[in-house]
Computed example of a mutant assay.
Amino acid sequence: MGYKLHQMQKSINNLQQTMETGFNKVETRLNNLDNKMSQGFNVVVEGLNHLNNRLNVVSGQLAYLYLLVQDNREKQENLGKAISNIHKMMLIKEICTLQAELEDLRRFPDESPRLALKTATNTRLFLSSQAMQSTPQLEAELLLNTDVSIQGWAVATATEAHLLLQMGQHQEAKGILREEVEKFKTLAHNWGNSLIKEDNSSLSTAYRFSASPFAEYITPERVTRIKDISPSDLSLDRDQVRRRKNEANVEFEMSYAQERYPKSWIQQQIAIAEYLDGLSELLARLESLEAFADLCQSRNLKSSKEILPDENTPSGLYLLPAN
C-alpha cells in the first residue's frame, strides 16, 4: 500500500509539473502578445493600460475553453454568455469607480477634483476603446455590452469636461470634447448605417420608421433624431424625403407585406429605432456640451459654476445668454 501511495504521489507531482510548464508557456505567449499590442501607443493613461492588458489576458486564458466544448453547441452558447458577463462586469466596474469618485466629491466639495478628474479620464479612455472595437451587429448580447460601453463613455466624457470647465480649463475641455464628439459621431454613423440597411432598398432608410406599421410606436421626433445619424438620409432634400416615405408606405401596402414583414420583424424594427434614438440623443448631448464649453471660454469665466444654477435653484429649464 505504501508503494502504491508513493507511486501515486509521484504521478501527481509529474502531472503538476507538466501543468505548471504548460501554464508558464501560455503566460509567456500572452505576455508577448500584450507587448506587441502595446507598441504603437505613444500616450496611454496608466490605469487604462493596466485594464486593457488584464482584459486581453482574461480573453486569452478563456479562449481555450471553446476548444473543450467545440462539439457541443449549447455549451458553446453558455460559455459565450459567461464570458460576455465577465466583460460586462468589467465595464460596469469602471462606471461604478467613476460614480464613487463623484459621490466623494459631492460629500467633500472643498477637496480638489483632480482625483475624480483622473478617474473620469481613465474611464473615458477605457470605455471608448471598448465601444469603438465593437462591430455593429443586430445581436442582443453585443448590443447590451456595447450600450454599456457607449453610455459609460458619454457620461465619463461629460463628467471630465464639466470638471475641467469648473476649474477654468476651457481649452482643455474643448479639446477633449472635439475629439470625443468626432469619435462618437463616427460610431453612431457606423451603427446607423448597419442597423438601418435593408436588402429592400425601399426600406433601407430611417424614414421607414415613419410608415404606418410604426405609427403607434415611433414618433416623428424619434424618426428625425434617427435620421441625424443615418449618413444616407442626411443629404436628402425635401422631395427626396417625401419619395422615401412614399416608397416605404407602398412596400407595406403590398399584398405580400404581411407575410414578408410579420409581427416579429415589426418588433425588431421598433427595438432598432429605440437603440438608434438613444445613440442620437447621446451625441446631441455631447455636442451641446461642446457649445457650452465655447460659451464659457468666450465669456472668460473662471469657473462654469458662475453661470450654472446652484444646488438651491428650483429644477426647470434655464436659458444661458450668449452675451
Rank of each mutant, 00 (worst) to 15 (best):
K4A: 09
K4V: 08
L5K: 05
M8D: 09
N14G: 14
L15Q: 04
Q16D: 11
Q16M: 14
E27D: 07
R29C: 14
D34T: 14
M37D: 06
S38V: 00
F41P: 00
V43Y: 13
V44M: 14
V45K: 15
L51H: 02
N53R: 01
L55R: 06
S59D: 09
L68T: 12
Q70H: 13
E74Q: 15
I83M: 10
I92S: 13
C96T: 11
L102E: 14
D110S: 15
E111M: 09
L117K: 12
T119W: 02
L127R: 02
S128L: 03
S134N: 08
Q137I: 05
Q137T: 14
E139H: 12
T146H: 14
S149N: 04
A154H: 00
H162Y: 05
L164Y: 13
Q166W: 10
H170C: 11
H170Q: 07
I176P: 01
L177I: 09
R178P: 03
H189M: 08
H189I: 01
G192Y: 11
D199Q: 11
S201H: 10
A206Y: 07
Y217T: 11
I218W: 01
T219F: 00
E221M: 11
I226N: 00
D237G: 08
D239N: 05
D239M: 10
Q240R: 10
V250Q: 08
S255T: 06
A257D: 02
A257N: 05
Q258N: 04
Q258S: 04
Q258E: 10
I266A: 01
E274D: 15
S280H: 06
L286F: 03
F292G: 00
F292V: 00
L295A: 01
S298A: 14
K302E: 13
E306W: 01
P309T: 08
P314E: 13
Y318I: 15
A322C: 03
A322N: 05
N323Y: 08
